[in-house]
Design a binder for these strands. Structure first.
Length: 117
DNA sequence: CGAGTGACCCTAT
DNA sequence: AATAGGGCCACTC
């Protein structure tokens, strides 16, 4: 059958859709790492792809600010406009940001904090 | 087609 | 904690 509508069955498009869905699934007040989002989207090991999608996406309903690096730090260079915007959005959701970094979230970080305070 | 790049991640030192 | 090196992959030149 010929579709009159634009065909968006490209694998790249599928991936982008899956990634956006995974990001939208992050609950308010919580954060996820790029790699975690990638895995949730069924694309383990493709954290960089998540970053790429976020760069290109302009969707306003996409909670991009809930996506951080694996170590809990904001991915943007400190003091950049993007950095400040993300920090502000996180604080508005009750997520504390200290030194460009949020409170411990990953088990690995918690472990490091407990054993090497 | 090869080299460089990036809102990343992991391990080792 | 900070650095370095390798991996990953889409995109550009």
């Amino acid at each position: 059958m010929t579709n009159t509508a634009p065909a968006l069955n490209d694998s790249a498009d599928i991936r982008r859709t899956q990634i956006c869905a995974a990001i939208r699934a992050i609950p308010r007040g919580e954060v996820r790492a790029y790699g975690e989002v990638a895995s949730a989207a069924g694309l383990p090991g493709r954290a960089r792809l998540v970053a790429k999608v976020l760069t290109q996406s302009t969707a306003h309903d996409l909670p991009w600010h809930r996506v951080l690096r694996a170590d809990g730090r904001i991915a943007f260079p400190a003091n950049s406009e993007h950095f400040e915007m993300q920090r502000r959005r996180l604080l508005a959701e009750g997520v504390s940001v200290v030194n460009g970094r949020i409170a411990a979230r990953a088990a690995r970080d918690l472990d490091a904090m407990l054993w090497h305070p």
